[in-house]
Write a protein that binds this DNA or RNA. Sequence first.
DNA 1: GTGTTTGCAAAGTGTTTGCAATTTA
DNA 2: TAAATTGCAAACACTTTGCAAACAC
Lengths: 140, 140
Amino acid sequence: MKTDRPFSAALERLRAAGLRPTRQRLALTRLLYSDGDRHVTAESLHKEAMANRVQVSLATVYNTLHQFTGATLLREVVVDSARSYFDTNTSHHHHFFCEESQQLMDIPGDAMRVENLPAPPDGATVRRIDVVVRVGPSES
Amino acid sequence: MKTDRPFSAALERLRAAGLRPTRQRLALTRLLYSDGDRHVTAESLHKEAMANRVQVSLATVYNTLHQFTGATLLREVVVDSARSYFDTNTSHHHHFFCEESQQLMDIPGDAMRVENLPAPPDGATVRRIDVVVRVGPSES
DNA sequence: GTGTTTGCAAAGTGTTTGCAATTTA
DNA sequence: TAAATTGCAAACACTTTGCAAACAC
């Protein structure tokens, strides 16, 4: 009998994060991590689940996205004030964002650097640096 | 008779942008540009207007912020998916953002540089590069 | 006067929450 | 069985819109 790879990988991933492997979380984990790095919104993931005959409510998708973010299985990316995006790549990196297509694309972490960052104000510490390169179609 | 500086400056600013100098727009312009660079949300500007006995509806504040953005009198800054921020400094620069206090602070445009930006995907052009340095209180 | 702008209240969007029913361990 | 999770529908916060009254030119 051969192991159902995506399934057991999902199980392990949830266990490692200390989250109960419920049917919904397992299904969403498989969708999110079976095929390389991805950027999803609550709605896109919910649609994808529906299309794959995984029954999950939108509320549960929201909850799950936030739990996963809390467990650093996901990283939230703020690029659009209308919608929240979540990235399965939790390592330090930046993004291209195309406003017309609403597409996010990773920029590998070491391909880019921010130079001469001034000291943060008063008693503040830098938590994170986010670079968003907004792009659009060439012909304007 | 001496000129009412903030008033006529606001008038000129609106004229230059091709916007009719209505009572509401003049008042908001004076609030926005009389005292250095500022970061506002629709609600903060509306509150400020009320506090200064300028009667404007929140809907008009929203409309005005967008018209001003379209006329490059303002620049929208995306840092928080819950709220839209507008910056009276329209030149190229980046921001510190403190999530606990919801405070935005400018980082002067030339103090910081992004190095080794990879080429944008396919037939895309870079429209803008936004760097957000998220900070928090030092004691964690 | 004529076209623009305003303000209200209603509608809209994405997101969160309360709680009973279900599921996991 | 006890505690965690789900799903629904209602509640939310912020934002946009339709339209009649007010205003700028």
